[in-house]
Amino acid sequence: MSVVERAIETAAKAYLRAPKLFGVPTGIEGLDDMFFTVEVEDGRPVKKPLGGIPYRSVLNLTGVPDTGKSLMVEQFAVTQASLGYPVCFVTVESPANFVAGGLKKRAEAMGIDWEESKERIILVDAASYRELREELPTLLKTLAHVISEYDVKNSVVDSITGLFEAREVMARSIVREVFNFLKKWGQTAILISQKRSAHGAETAEAAGGYAVSHILDGTIVLNKELITTRWQEQLYGSPIGGVVRTIRIDGCRMTGHDTSTHLLYITELGLVKVGPSLEELRRRMRGGGE
């Protein structure tokens, strides 16, 4: 049978191969319940939280600097490792020893036994090895080795943008190839992409730009705002001069999801957690004022 013939199949057959839909816990408080499924019970649709990001989804996590992207994937990695599932962590920005330090801190802040979990996180150091950043076949061959050798189920790339630095013309084909690879190897993955501050929060670029968000299964957008106006002060309930971070799921083709914008907090211990939606916040503030 030729490749073309293999590529054509009926929906009925393809459905048999569809992975079961369930949530993979991220360890980020409030995020897991932003994904849900809808089941029909007694003829009525019932919304059920997924309890994590969809199994075998490859998600784009994007935002301007200092919004908490790397902290979030570190939380995801140590959470999955603590549950017994090996994680492949591709670091493109910081060398492996720095990432290891961050992971240890995250585990300690989350009350996870680092000594017990650390062997289940396999670091691929693309920050230190140029060929891993610049030669995609070498990166994919390395990932294939790691996934089969360590029976890896979850992957993280921090960041995918680092793979097409100075050659943005190649972004689409590089992202497509990484996406296809991770799907083929059955990975539940989070890929970080960097958003430039010049990209407005509501533009297409806000969801990663360079077609990253079009190719991947879904996008989570983080944002950061400096409170400079009375209007912002009222909207976020934060004083002028303060910084507010937000999170929203820009889209996810694999499951239902909360589309509203939520506040995002980074605790003193460096843990990211999702706060109330802006709507809920406004309701609370109105309630408090009455």
Partner: peptide, 13 residues
């Protein structure tokens, strides 16, 4: 010890 993996090269030659 954490596992850190270096490149498994795909040779263009």
């Amino acid at each position: 010890m954490m596992v850190v993996v270096g490149p498994v090269r795909e040779d263009p030659n």
